[in-house]
């Protein structure tokens, strides 16, 4: 994707030169080839380090809420990120006029763990060309197919193209197939109750309460999270079953109608806990019941922040 990177760089360079923005949130190269980092560009000289490839695994919208509202922010957004930004605009976390969204149609984020599984831990170089990914492991080049390495949530992606971006770099990609995620959820729903609970239990009990899922999520921006409350205390703070289950249930539920299925939570988890099966269920219900998808525009409030008298038919008396 070298052309895209050049285009991105030129775009950011112009933004910074024109002083149209105070900071541009993007990715930069790091020492480890598989771990590009979120970066904050304020000078053109720093753009030497700019990186954009399939390994940029974080949701950059996460950093938006750290800035005062009058900061002019440029942000590189892929499909899910742009929707997260929109959802944050709806929730009045940053004014639209102080944002410049540089949209990049996304071919999907690669799962580092899938790469390491196929090769080994110590990868010394990485490059990608279209559908081909090549890594250097112990001095040998290994070629891999991009489609085999996509993160699970990207395999189910419906909207790869940025929504509401100010500029779009590269050609728009075809929309994803919404039946894939629906089928996955329906398959889970079709399991019997005990199996569903057993799965949930198995995933939740590995939790170490590091809250990486929370911190990696752009929509988790509360100053004080419910698990941090001391009076009243809502959940147990140890790694007991009741504590970790409560965390997983409520964390996911707080995302209802706000989650954009970016999968940043799952990628951040150090214990490989599956989480998107929870939020995907909520997203599916939001779509079916309220015809709502989070972040598809920057003014429709999520279903739980609004009400409708038509709902009265649903009151079972």
């Amino acid at each position: 994707m070298p052309e895209l990177k050049t285009e991105l760089r030129n775009n950011i360079e112009q933004l910074l030169n024109d002083q149209a923005v105070d900071v541009v949130i993007a990715f930069k190269k790091a020492d480890l080839p598989l771990r590009p980092q979120p970066a904050f560009f304020r000078n053109v000289e720093e753009l030497e380090d700019l990186e954009y490839n399939g390994l940029c695994q974080n949701n950059l919208a996460n950093y938006l809420t750290r800035y005062p509202h009058d900061t002019k922010i440029g942000i590189v957004v892929r499909g899910c990120e742009s929707r997260s930004v929109n959802a944050l605009i709806v929730e009045k976390q940053h004014p639209r006029e102080n944002l410049y969204m540089i949209g990049v149609p996304c071919q999907g984020i690669l799962d580092i763990r899938k790469i390491i599984n196929k090769t080994g831990e110590d990868i010394t170089d990485y490059s990608e060309d279209g559908d081909q990914v090549s890594v250097i492991f112990k001095g040998n080049e290994i070629k891999l197919q991009r489609s085999d390495l996509l993160h699970d949530s990207c395999l189910r992606c419906v909207h790869p193209n940025p929504v509401n971006a100010d500029v779009l770099l590269g050609d728009p990609l075809p929309e994803g197939d919404p039946t894939i995620v629906r089928q996955a959820i329906e398959e889970f729903e079709a399991l019997d109750r005990d199996e569903r609970y057993a799965w949930f239990q198995k995933e939740a009990e590995r939790c170490i309460r590091c809250y990486a899922c929370r911190e990696a999520c752009p929509m988790c921006y509360c100053t004080e999270c419910f698990v941090d409350h001391t009076t009243p205390r809502w959940t147990e703070s140890d790694i007991s079953q009741a504590g970790t289950q409560a965390w997983h249930i409520i964390r996911a539920f707080h995302q209802a109608g706000r989650c954009t299925s970016c999968g940043a939570c799952e990628r951040a988890c150090p214990m490989d806990i599956k989480m998107t099966y929870l939020t995907d269920k909520l997203n599916k219900d939001m779509l079916e019941v309220y015809q709502f998808e989070a972040g598809m525009d920057d003014n429709t409030p999520p279903p739980f922040a609004s009400f409708n008298l038509d709902d009265k038919n649903r009151f079972v008396i």
Partner: peptide
């Protein structure tokens, strides 16, 4: 600047030892 403020580094660290003592009042 890019740090998320999660507990991965410290919880997985073999030399980090900070602890917190809590009364789980319900149990």
């Amino acid at each position: 600047e890019s740090c998320l403020g999660c507990g991965v580094c410290t919880y997985l660290c073999p030399t980090c030892f900070c602890f917190d003592i809590v009364d789980e009042v319900q149990r």
